[in-house]
Each structure stands twice: as structure tokens, then as C-alpha cells.
Design a protein around this nucleic acid. Structure first.
Length: 588
RNA sequence: GCGUCUGUAGCUCAGUGGAUAGAGCAGCGGCCUCCGGAGCCGCGUGCGGAGGUUCGAUUCCUCUCAGACGCACCA
């Protein structure tokens, strides 16, 4: 909670209590009428009924009971029963000093001692990343950082799509093209080559070709199916090809996620979970959970409180093969065995809501995870084009992530060169930072669960609620501080003085809310709260900046106080963008 | 058909059981002898619709309209 709110509540609750009312009525919230006050308490109205008194009377009593507390500049009751509060500048300055002195900006360490596994990758091997993978990566990376800031131990797992028919398709197509490779010779007993007989770009072409072929050529489809089984059985030639594919893909994926400043702690995949399937299924059978339905083996997950049908969770196909849900469940078996997480958070397309409902229920019924382990599904919406339909290339195809990123960087570079005098290398580097900020902020500033419109021009416009605007504000503060530090008597240790005017006070008030904003983002699994907060901080800073000449201020203490104030603003903003997953250049 | 989600300003989006629902963009008008004008300051329109609960509803509930999405052997 915001330190100001917390302190005010302590006073208000005591006042309600001393007047003979329930102290829970002393809840304080930020004012929705900034023209009247900074904070307000509506407890008098809530309590009016219970105590059979006019709300205005209660508000009057309470306000009078604590009016002489030094935390208030003003506390007054207003009809019909609001208690309006204005914070004393001296008290505010002290509270801001506490925020600035705290290692986590007074973010409550709610996650201390808790371990969370976050699943926010899901790319398929042998296929390029496309924009569909973007949201999971951006949102997941941000949540990982936010959770860590609140004290959680977080393990980010990429959860590769590296199993199933797609692998068989690739192998069969490879065999069709190069049947003489030793991998396909059952009699071959020597070592296989260290180098793959194909490149990544070969793979990117092979998969769609094979996929198309299997649809028209039944014999090929059958062969691919058999190749899949051969891989699953561990036939060493197929296993060796599999290793080649993984090695090539992972190298490429790391490079691409690196560009997004997205990092995973675990590079596990669906293939890693396969070994856990037989025991898991045996256990389900032993518990009597597995039932036959229309030829398949399923776990019923309908619950009595359901007001509608929830289809059963499919564990085994009628041909005995396992499915999507089977793998996800086995992955949970593995995660429980290896990490004992307190929570597993999935950042996945919201269209998979039903799937995860089934998986979570099955996991609980089967005792795969401990009863106290939280399973959370954060479903995100689709990234749409300006036409409101899912984002596509101009030709109507799926856009590769690399293309999207380079398009943004190019546009950012053009913008920087318009008004900058940077040399080319520096400009390129800054363009990448600005581009990433535009991309991530444009995504994260929306509620994760909703679809949003991707509009590069808007995200990069450098005006309004955008990543570049935040970066600009940060760079501006850095620039002032740099100039200040060249002065002979520069000191970064000035104490923050009580605000002298409205814009200074507004900035101080805003900065005190940093920890609360981060806790809110964490508790609600909502990075957009960070965006909103740092945007407000940026606005507050820019208003303050516009009304004060910091470096030419003649009052030394006042000047040092302002330096401390904008340093605090800088720290809050840089922390904010770090939690969103990007960073600011020195100049732009 | 069943279900889930969404509907807030011309556009893109926030938001809350409380007073007068906020930003940005677009439009109009101001501000550079000044630490970065990628900025600042003004100007106006809106909670899809109907009921209900409540002292008070855009927020909670029911119904309704519209759109997106999901409904077992793909992942």
C-alpha cells in the first residue's frame, strides 16, 4: 500500500475507533476530486446505517478527533459525509525520503519464500518465431520481473513445442530428400555426424512443405506418423536428428529472445515431459480417474457447482497416443518433482482457457500438484492490425518476429536521424532501445486479457502515452543530473524539502505511490498498471520541470532538494521500465 | 445450440460501490533571452440497452443487443 495512504489510515482508524466506531471504516483512498483534496475517507457514509447517525455527523466527529495530527495540512468533513484530506508538505517530504531510502521503493515483499514457475514461451522448434509468440514473451518477461521485485523466486520456462507429429513430419521429409543419410540406416552402428545435415533455414522450409504434403499424400502421412513413433521409442537415428533440430533451433531462439531482452531460466520442452507420462497414467488408472469415452481415455472434470458442461480432459487417443493435455500434465509432474513450486503461472493465448481449466482440474484430482499449489492461467488477447483483425503481413501471411522488430527499429532510426546529430552506430543502438520500448510499452499498456490494435506509428509517435515518451523523460532527467554533476559543489545527498508549490507536491505525492503500483501490478497480474503509473510520474515530472529552473536555482538547499527529488523520479521511472522489460539510453 | 470474454469520447485505451468518469491521438488556440519543444498550458464530446440490489451503480446481479473467441482424439 502507498505509504501516504497507510499513514493516513493509521490515523483515521484510530480516530474512528476513539469515537466509538469500527476502525475498518477508516479506509483511505486517493481522491477522485483532486480539486478538493488529495485523499479521502468515505467510512462515515458506510457506517451511517450501522450506527443510525447521519454520515455528516460521524465525519465531523472523526475529522475533529484527529485534526491536530501533523500529517494533515487540512482534514475536513464535507456533505454528505466525505472526509477530505490534504497532506502536510513536511510529512510528505519525510515519507518520500523513506521511499527513496528503501531498496524496493517500499514495495511489500509479498513473495518472500515463495517459488513461482512461469510458462510464457511455447515456441515450436524448427519454426521461426512469429508475432503470435510476442505477447507471451513480453507479458511473461514483465511479470517475471515484477514478481521478483516483490520478493518471489521465479523460474521462467520456455516450454518448447518440440514433440509430436511435427517432428515426425520433418524427419520423414528429410528421409524423402536424403534417404542415404546414416540416420535412416537401421544397420548403421557408428557415430552420427556432429554437424546437422541441414540448416535452420532448411528446417523452416521443410516443415511447411512436409505439412502440406501429408495432407495430399496418405502414404507420406503414414510414414510421418511412423517416424513420430520411432522418435518416441528412442530409435537412435531419429533421436540424433532430433538433437540436431533442437540444437539449431535453441541457438536461434536464444538469439531472437535476446533481441527482445526476454530471458528464460529453463529451456525445457514437451519432449522432457514424455518420460513422466506412463507412470502418470498408471497412477490415474490406479486412482480410478481414467475412464473410457468414445474410444479414448479421459478424466472427467465436471464439478457439481458448474452451471454448464465442462468436457472431459483427454489423456489418451483411441490409438493410444497421448495428447496436448497429457503433455501439460506430465510437465506439471516434472515441475512438482524438481521444483515444488508454490504457483505455476501460464501466460498463454486466452483461447486456451478451456484447455487449462481441464488440465488444472485433472492435476488436482490426480494429485499431481500439492493442494496448496496455485495454478494460474493468464490468457492474453490477440494482437490485431489497424483493421481490427489479427495482425498479418501486407500479403496476408504470418509476420515473422524478426521482420516486425527490424521494421520498428528502422522506423525508430529514421526518427532519430531526423533531429539528431548522433553518429550512425550510436543512432542504431538508440533506435533499438527506442524500438523495443515502443513495442513493449505498446503491448503492455493494454490489459493483457484484451485484444489490442498494433499501430506502429502510434507506438513510435513519441507523443502521449508511449514508451518513447517515457524514455524521453528519463533521458531528460539524466541530462540535467549530468550537467549538475559538473558543478563544483554538486551533491547528491540533499534532503528532500517540503514542496513549495503544487507541481512539486504533485510529483512528490506521485512518487510515494511507487511501491503500491508495483504491488498492484503483481497482485492483479497486470503490467499495464506499471505503465499507467510511470506515465503519471512522467507527466508529473514534466509539469514540475516546466515550472522550475533547477540548475539556476539560487537557494542551495532548495536546489539540492530538487536534485534529490528528480533523482528519486529517475529511479522510479527506471525501475518501472525495467519491470516492463526495457531500458533507456543516455541520450536520444 | 451451449459457454467464455469484450462493449467507455471521432480513433486508441485507462478507471472506480461514492462528489463533476479520465488520458493520448486527431482538431483549435497559446508558451522558446529558459536545465533537451520528442515538452508545457488551455478549449469538448462518452459508460450498447432495459430492469434490479444500494443512501449512492459506469462498477454488483438478471435480462437483452452487438462483436470476438471456444466447444474431446492438432499443439
Amino acid at each position: 500500500m502507498n505509504i501516504i495512504q497507510k499513514r493516513l489510515e493509521e490515523v483515521l482508524k484510530a480516530a474512528f475507533s476513539s469515537c466509538g466506531y469500527d476502525e475498518s471504516l477508516g479506509t483511505v483512498v486517493t481522491s477522485n476530486r483532486p480539486d478538493l483534496c488529495e485523499y479521502q475517507c468515505n467510512g462515515a457514509m458506510a457506517g451511517a446505517k450501522k450506527y443510525h447517525k447521519a454520515p455528516f455527523v460521524i465525519a465531523d466527529e472523526v475529522a475533529a478527533a484527529c485534526a491536530d495530527n501533523v500529517i494533515f495540512e487540512k482534514i475536513e468533513s464535507v456533505k454528505p459525509g466525505f472526509i477530505n484530506i490534504t497532506v502536510a508538505p513536511e510529512a510528505l517530504a519525510e515519507m518520500l525520503a523513506e521511499v527513496a531510502a528503501d531498496g524496493h521503493l517500499l514495495t511489500e515483499q509479498t513473495g518472500t519464500g515463495k517459488k513461482v514457475i512461469m510458462d510464457y514461451g511455447g515456441p515450436n522448434v524448427a519454426k521461426p518465431l512469429h508475432v503470435g509468440h510476442l505477447r507471451a514473451a513480453i507479458i511473461g518477461e514483465s511479470l517475471k520481473r515484477i514478481y521478483r521485485y516483490a520478493g518471489y523466486e521465479v523460474l521462467g520456462d520456455i516450454h518448447l513445442g518440440d514433440w509430436g507429429l511435427q517432428m515426425g513430419l520433418i524427419m520423414e521429409e528429410l528421409r524423402r530428400r536424403q534417404p542415404d543419410l546414416p540416420y535412416f540406416d537401421p544397420a548403421y552402428e557408428g557415430d552420427y555426424p556432429k554437424e546437422a545435415p541441414f540448416t535452420l533455414s532448411d528446417l523452416e522450409e521443410i516443415y511447411p512443405t512436409a505439412s502440406a504434403r501429408s495432407k495430399e499424400d496418405a502414404a507420406f502421412a503414414e510414414a510421418a506418423h511412423n517416424a513420430t513413433i520411432a522418435l518416441q521409442k528412442g530409435v537412435r537415428g531419429y533421436r540424433a536428428i532430433f538433437e540436431h533440430i533442437i540444437a539449431l533451433s535453441v541457438t536461434d531462439l536464444k538469439k531472437n529472445y535476446e533481441k527482445l531482452d526476454v530471458h528464460f531460466d529453463l529451456w525445457k520442452g514437451e519432449s522432457d515431459a514424455q518420460a513422466f507420462i506412463p507412470d502418470m497414467i498408471a497412477d490415474m488408472e490406479a486412482k480410478g480417474l481414467l475412464v473410457e469415452s468414445q474410444g479414448a481415455m479421459v478424466v472427467e472434470v465436471q464439478e457439481e457447482t458448474d452451471t454448464h458442461d465442462v468436457p472431459p480432459c483427454l489423456i489418451k487417443k483411441s490409438d493410444g497416443a497421448s495428447l496436448y493435455a497429457t503433455t501439460d500434465l506430465a510437465t506439471l509432474v516434472q515441475r512438482e518433482r524438481d521444483y515444488h513450486p508454490d504457483e505455476v503461472l501460464y501466460v498463454v493465448d486466452k483461447r486456451q482457457d478451456m484447455h487449462f481449466t481441464q488440465v488444472f482440474r485433472t492435476a488436482r484430482k490426480a494429485g499431481i500438484i500439492r493442494p496448496e499449489t496455485k495454478l494460474t492461467f493468464l490468457g492474453f488477447g490477440t494482437m490485431n492490425g489497424k483493421d481490427g483483425k489479427p495482425f498479418k503481413t501486407r500479403e496476408g501471411g504470418v509476420m515473422r518476429l524478426e521482420t516486425l522488430i527490424s521494421d520498428i527499429n528502422e522506423a525508430a532510426l529514421a526518427r532519430i536521424k531526423e533531429n539528431g546529430s548522433m553518429d550512425d552506430d550510436a543512432a542504431q543502438e538508440v533506435a533499438e532501445m527506442v524500438g523495443l520500448a515502443a513495442l513493449k510499452y505498446g503491448d503492455l499498456s493494454n490489459q493483457a486479457g484484451k485484444n489490442y490494435v498494433f499501430d506502429m506509428d502510434r507506438f513510435l509517435s513519441f507523443e502521449g502515452n508511449t514508451g518513447p515518451y517515457i524514455l524521453y523523460t528519463i533521458v531528460r532527467i539524466k541530462s540535467i543530473l549530468k550537467k549538475y554533476l559538473t558543478e563544483a559543489d554538486a551533491s547528491m545527498n540533499g534532503s528532500i524539502l517540503p514542496a513549495g508549490d503544487a507541481s512539486e507536491k504533485a510529483l512528490q505525492l506521485k512518487l510515494c505511490g511507487a511501491g503500491a503500483a508495483i504491488n498492484d501490478a503483481c497482485d492483479d497480474i497486470a503490467p499495464h498498471r506499471i505503465c499507467q503509473y510511470i506515465y503519471e510520474v512522467s507527466n508529473a515530472f514534466n509539469s514540475f520541470y516546466h515550472e522550475h529552473r533547477i540548475l539556476t536555482e539560487s537557494d542551495k538547499e532548495r536546489k539540492k532538494s530538487w536534485i534529490s527529488l528528480i533523482s528519486a523520479a529517475l529511479r522510479v521511472l527506471e525501475t518501472g521500465i525495467d519491470l516492463l522489460g526495457f531500458s533507456a539510453p543516455e541520450q536520444m
